[in-house]
Write a protein that binds this DNA or RNA. Structure first.
Lengths: 337, 337
DNA sequence: ATAACCTATTGGAACGTTCCATACGATTCT
DNA sequence: AGAATCGTATGGAACGTTCCAATAGGTTAT
């Protein structure tokens, strides 16, 4: 039952442990005869190198820790995929742990990662203050994903939310919309930039007077509440731009319930391009983010520091892309060309 | 930059490394004075115990490896949550890695876990043969989740799919349905039991002659194809029981496109209760599984072997539950009581 | 006063690797 | 023939802990 060690293999093959080690790492540097003998012995014993021992002496684990705030968010699954893939290609592995949307448990997850001596850390949708993170993890490189920061010590990779919002609004205007309302989520990470993109696009088209902000949240119920408020006002916009897909979904539900037609009466745009946006009967027009790319990029940032010795912080911004589906169309009065 | 070790702390506190170690593990066994001195020194240096070194000497890592076939499947996210929670409570941590729906990469993920010397392994939706798994991992306990097996060496925890299917069919019959068709996914893991549950329930109600099996798959397109076939046959059932939610979604799309009403013309039942089933406009009636419970149960199975010395295999089956939403109702002709 | 027994602490071995300086033959060169 | 070189192989130190047997004082019992 006890796992064989390198010494067991060495004994059986009649060579020294050092040679076995060499065969495992650089087989081409060993003579044909020894190599075959060692490999055979290892096979027979079912030997598997002990990464724990290796990590101890090499003082690195070749593991990148990924702390994600919420496993359920489908956004993170794609990102994590990108991370795993990129890490694997460069000889690293990814270890995931979730922070459970709770700062204390997030703290715990980071502690655990650092005790396990991960070589680098990627944080998805973290809820901790950047300064706190900087203080907490000084020993390994960190990349913040999906968050913007001007930190001089931690890297970040995010999406240009302002550009994404502008793209969405530009599209609506192009379809003939003027009265475009925006549901925002206050100061929660991500929302301010989307809102400013909305405002920027409206102003750029001289639609300052039509700017209409309604407070909602990043949740289905937040979107529903905001949409209810809009309907109650009596002054209906012809299009609504929600801060994310969940909120858009809530808005959609309320519009449906009010007996209004989408996109006939109201066009609806979300943000994130979650899988649900593409479902039949939903078909939500939304702003997509290159999720796997984000993960890959974050991994590269970590590896640049690890393997290429970069010292100064880098902040990468990737562009989003609009995905047009069936919740948008020209407004009733003015069929677009 | 170099991380402080236990020796650095010992020096600074003026005690031996052994005492520092003891303070970290069982502070109550150390005198007040020493404890305070050690803790202060550790704090000042920013000392963090090295789990790699500890694991080496203790010959266990307190980590449970979780290999999941697909991060995107929302089913797994909930299960993984349950695993993490249960593991954490018992002093273990969970390390996730995805097999990417590819047997080769799954093999690689297992290899990596074993090299990292995880103490136990949980496999979600594995695509490997049980005998292969048994052969591959002899050193640590394994639990198969979401799969049934009678293996004498690996444990398993799964849902009673036959019971779930029967519950769904019973419900349809109770609503007044007689002509109930079942889309199945061939011999892919999970499908046979759901099918036999369907058949059992039909027979139990004397509806043998109405049993109708249509070959589909566990995917949206598989469900769509099967539904297309059903519509083309000209002989419409009043209810369709799909093998999972994705397939149900595909069927739903086809029924919509044909201009038929759900549930007026056809009632539709899925399986899994994915998040999408609860979305507005979808409202799919489906069979739910206690996902977090599955995860917790799997963790307990592993820990029973690890900490309580269980040797013989255990196979746990948990009951599913029907979730009625809006894709089901009485058939046109016969309004239920 | 000595033996016996605590409690608090310590030093060294062990865990399973990698890394490095060194050793060993066998060639090749002078 | 001896020196230099080369390709292989080796032994021992190191990585940072935990564990255990041993020790040093202090207290209690005889």
């Amino acid at each position: 039952m006890k796992q064989p060690t390198i010494l067991d293999v060495a004994d059986r093959a009649g060579v020294s442990k050092s040679l076995v080690s060499l065969v495992m790492r650089e087989p081409e540097r060993v003579s044909e005869a020894s190599r075959v003998a060692v490999l055979a012995a290892a096979e027979e014993l079912g030997y598997r190198p002990n990464a724990v021992a290796r990590s101890l002496v090499q003082r690195r684990t070749k593991v990148i820790g990924v702390v994600l705030s919420d496993l359920h968010n489908p956004f993170f699954a794609d990102v994590a995929d990108g991370i795993e893939e990129a890490a694997f290609q460069r000889g690293y592995r990814a270890m995931l742990s979730s922070g459970f949307l709770d700062p204390k448990r997030e703290h715990g997850a980071i502690d655990m990662m650092l005790e396990l001596r991960v070589d680098g850390l990627i944080m998805l949708g973290s809820m901790m203050k950047v300064t706190k993170i900087e203080k907490m993890v000084t020993a390994v490189p960190v990349t913040l994903l999906g968050r913007h920061t001007r930190s001089k010590v931690v890297d970040s990779v995010g999406v240009d939310d302002s550009a994404g919002a502008q793209e969405a609004v530009d599209y609506l205007i192009e379809q003939g919309h003027r009265k475009i309302a925006h549901i925002h989520a206050g100061n929660v990470a991500g929302s301010p930039r989307r809102r400013s993109g909305y405002e920027k696009a409206m102003r750029r088209h001289g639609l300052d007077e039509h700017i209409r902000l309604v407070r909602g949240a990043f949740t289905e119920s937040g979107g529903a509440a905001a949409m209810t408020e809009i309907l109650a006002s009596g002054d209906l916009p012809t299009a609504v731009f929600a801060p994310n897909d969940f909120a858009a979904l809530g808005a959609l539900e309320v519009i449906d319930a009010a007996g209004l037609d989408i996109p006939g009466d109201i066009s609806l745009v979300g943000y994130d391009d979650l899988a649900l946006a593409a479902l039949p009967r939903i078909g939500l027009t939304t702003v997509g983010q290159p999720r796997a790319d984000l993960g890959r990029e974050a991994t590269h940032l970590v590896l640049e520091r690890l393997d290429e010795g970069r010292e100064s912080a880098r902040h990468v911004v990737v562009p989003p892309n609009l995905v047009v589906r069936s919740t948008t169309g020209p407004p009733r009065g003015a069929p677009a060309s």
